[in-house]
Write a protein that binds this DNA or RNA. Structure first.
Lengths: 141, 141
DNA sequence: TTTCGTGCAAATATTTTGCACAGAA
DNA sequence: TTCTGTGCAAAATATTTGCACGAAA
C-alpha cells in the first residue's frame, strides 16, 4: 500500500508531513510519536512534534495505524491493515508481524459461558525475537 | 489471600499505607494509581499520592499486582496470582477475572515456526461485560 | 476561495524524585 | 538502633491545545 493511496483512500489531505509520518512507519516497526518525529525529520526537518501526535491520532481514527502497547512510557503505533488481527512483536528490533488467523472464537465462547460474561472482543500479542535479530545477536531491524 | 500475609510473604514491610493500597485493590477491579489513592484515602486520609505510585511499583516487582492496560491515559493495576494467566475484563465495572487455563502453547509454537521467531511469551485479554453489569444495565461493580 | 493542516509555545496530566522525618524490624 | 517507607512539593516527561499562518482542494 503506498503512502499517497492510504491518505487519499481515507479522505485525508496529502501533505508532506503526513507522508513523512507514514514513510517512517513503513518500516513495519512499532514506533512512539517521538521516534516517528525523529525519523521523519530526516526528510522533513520542519515537522513539528505536535503535528506527529495529531497525525497519529488522525491516522488511528482512519484505521491506517494501530496504537499497540507502550515502550518506555510512550505509546507506540504501527501501520496496520483494517480487520481484526493479532500481533507478533520482536522485542529486540520492535518489528511487528500481523497475524490474521484467529482461532479464538471457540475459546472466547467457552470463557464467556463459564464466567457469565458477554465477551465483545479480545487482544492477543506474542512477544519474542525475530529470526534476523536471533542471527545477528543484536538489534538488526 | 490476606493483605498482611501478602506483604510478609514477599518480605515487604507492613505499613498502614500498604495495607490501604492492597485493601483498595481487594475489590478485584483494575484501578489506576489515582483511583487507588482516592479509595484508600477513605480509611487512610494522610496517604500521599506518591506513596501510592511507589507502592504499586513495589508490589508489581513483588508480583503481588499486575499492571494491566490503560484507562483514560492512566495505567491500571490489579491484584494478581503469581503464575502465567490471562484476563477477562468487564468494560463497564472494570472487574477483572483471571484465566488460568492457557491453551496457546500449540498456537504459539506454530506461529513461531511460521514466522521464524523464537516466541518468549504472549498476553491475551478478553473484553466484555460481566453478568452483573449486563443485568443492571449500568456499572454495578 | 474556503477549509483543513501546521508550527510554535504554553498548558495539562501523569508519574518520578529529593529531602527530612517517622515508623517497622 | 538501623534501615526502609512516607509526605510534601518540585521536577521531569508525555501529550494536548490555542492561535495565526500556510497550503491543499
Amino acid at each position: 500500500m503506498d503512502v499517497d493511496g492510504a491518505l487519499r483512500d481515507h479522505g485525508l489531505r496529502r501533505t508532506p508531513q503526513r507522508r513523512a509520518v507514514l514513510d517512517a512507519l513503513m518500516g513495519g516497526r512499532a514506533m512512539s510519536a517521538q521516534e516517528v518525529h525523529e525519523a521523519a525529520r530526516v526528510t522533513t526537518p520542519e515537522l513539528g512534534l505536535s503535528t506527529v501526535y495529531r497525525t497519529l491520532i488522525t491516522l488511528s481514527e482512519a484505521g491506517v495505524v494501530d496504537a499497540i502497547g507502550q515502550h518506555d512510557g510512550e505509546a507506540t503505533y504501527r501501520l496496520c491493515s483494517g480487520g481484526h488481527h493479532h500481533h507478533l512483536i520482536c522485542d529486540t528490533c520492535r518489528r511487528v508481524v500481523e497475524l490474521s488467523e484467529c482461532d479464538l472464537t471457540a475459546v472466547q465462547d467457552a470463557i464467556a459461558a463459564e464466567h457469565g460474561f458477554s465477551v465483545t472482543g479480545h487482544s492477543l500479542t506474542f512477544h519474542g525475537v525475530c529470526g534476523d535479530c536471533a542471527r545477528s545477536g543484536s538489534g538488526a531491524g
